[in-house]
Amino acid sequence: MVIVMADSLADKKLGTYTVKEIKSACNKLYNLGIVPGARITVISNDRGPIIVRVGNCKLAMGRGMARSIIVE
């Protein structure tokens, strides 16, 4: 169960953040380079999926998944 946290990626405005913690053990996130310490840039967090950039790679993810990524 994912608990909504104030500082999850889902609530962040455009900008670059550092991943602090990942709430769900998800291989998919690890595979795409989303690990604690990684830099992640929110490109769009409006309607539809959240679009982020990790390194030079653009990703689109659902809100549920974005909520499990804690950033600062």
Binding site: I43, R47, G48, N56, A60
Partner: peptide, 19 residues
């Protein structure tokens, strides 16, 4: 060195209406 290239076109292409 990492180069970060911004483009915003996906914002529109993935928009639930415009998309």
């Amino acid at each position: 060195t990492e180069s970060i290239v911004y483009d915003d076109i996906d914002k529109i292409l993935l928009h639930p209406i415009y998309g």
